Simulated assay, not measured.
Amino acid sequence: MKDHIYIIIAVFKRLEITRKCLESLKNQTFKNFTVILVDHCTGDDSYKSLIENEFPEVVLLKGDDSMWWTAATNFGINYVLNLKDTAESFILTLNNDLIAGDDYLEQLMITYNKYKPCLVGSVSVDFDDINNVDFAGCHWNIYTTRMKDNFGKTGDIYKKIEKLDFIESDLLPGRGMLIPMEVFAKIGLFDNDLFPHYASDFDFSHMARKAGYKLIISPKAIVRSMVKETGLRFDKLSTSKPSFKFLYLTQTSIKSPLNIKTRFNWAKKHTIISPAYFLIDTTRILLSYFRYTLKYYINK
């Protein structure tokens, strides 16, 4: 179906959060879409009951516990690829801890039609404070390893973003990324081998950019993000006492964007001198944790 959006949402428990996300998609001004929920929690039928009773229009696919975000998302994409007449359609990857505005899908499509061929990302703001911007594009420095936010995160950023027609980004996260179906024929699916959970979205968007697609963010395609529900991050520590255990988890847990294996795989796949890049990247992360620890004890 032409200009049809297939929204892929990978879920693992968190039923109430998902319910809020699905509710936000019910009143979209753009109507030509299908939501595909990929439940990869084995032995839990709570989503089946939710879909049957409250969201019968949603397609529910059952995965298994071996899947993380990448495999579950690919599972949903493969389902769409096996349907008929989807060549001129779109995949939208969306996390279940996001709340979309009523014109969200419409704004994504407006931006796509202006700047195609492209992938279109979303502006992600904090659920409780829209002036706290979680993502509005980034610049990736291949030498210093830093991924710097285009606008920072706080202040009057939201007002600045509202006035823009588009935002360019070096990478796009899967938290609201519109992808033309043709892209999968050119670069394949998300890389589950190297990036089973984190970084597969950045990796995919980077590969699409290398294949000739612009990475554009629609300033008016806003999702409110439940930031505190997302991964293992230093900023989740808040005022908690730093611990070696937490540092260890950030480096080893598959749920962490700082996972050392993930960072190594990124360096290996996307940088010229990967050992040097990986060393700089790891050092920078450890220094960030040291600064947090120092700040904690100074302010104590």
Rank of each mutant, 00 (worst) to 15 (best):
residue 162 E to T: 14
residue 65 D to G: 04
residue 137 G to Q: 06
residue 61 L to Q: 01
residue 55 F to Y: 13
residue 52 E to D: 11
residue 46 S to Q: 10
residue 32 N to R: 14
residue 118 C to E: 01
residue 69 W to M: 03
residue 117 P to G: 07
residue 107 Q to W: 02
residue 58 V to I: 04
residue 84 K to E: 10
residue 160 K to L: 12
residue 43 G to T: 07
residue 86 T to I: 15
residue 66 S to L: 04
residue 106 E to P: 00
residue 131 N to K: 13
residue 94 L to T: 02
residue 127 F to I: 10
residue 120 V to N: 06
residue 63 G to H: 06
residue 152 G to A: 10
residue 58 V to E: 00
residue 104 Y to P: 07
residue 163 K to L: 14
residue 78 N to S: 04
residue 106 E to N: 08
residue 123 V to N: 01
residue 100 A to T: 10
residue 159 K to C: 09
residue 44 D to S: 10
residue 105 L to A: 06
residue 79 Y to H: 15
residue 47 Y to R: 06
residue 48 K to S: 08
residue 52 E to C: 02
residue 78 N to G: 05
residue 133 V to S: 11
residue 51 I to L: 09
residue 119 L to F: 07
residue 163 K to V: 09
residue 56 P to M: 00
residue 68 W to L: 02
residue 44 D to E: 14
residue 140 W to T: 06
residue 47 Y to C: 08
residue 127 F to D: 12
residue 56 P to Y: 02
residue 139 H to L: 12
residue 39 D to C: 12
residue 111 T to E: 03
residue 35 V to R: 00
residue 56 P to W: 03
residue 92 L to Q: 04
residue 35 V to Q: 00
residue 131 N to T: 12
residue 37 L to P: 06
residue 61 L to N: 03
residue 140 W to A: 09
residue 118 C to Y: 07
residue 104 Y to C: 02
residue 158 Y to N: 07
residue 126 D to P: 05
residue 133 V to F: 11
residue 140 W to C: 09
residue 125 V to W: 03
residue 105 L to G: 05
residue 55 F to D: 05
residue 127 F to W: 07
residue 115 Y to E: 07
residue 102 D to T: 07
residue 96 N to E: 11
residue 152 G to I: 11
residue 94 L to H: 04
residue 158 Y to W: 09
residue 125 V to L: 08
residue 38 V to H: 03
residue 161 I to T: 06
residue 97 D to F: 05
residue 166 F to P: 12
residue 154 T to S: 13
residue 166 F to H: 10
residue 138 C to G: 08
residue 37 L to E: 10
residue 136 A to N: 07
residue 108 L to T: 03
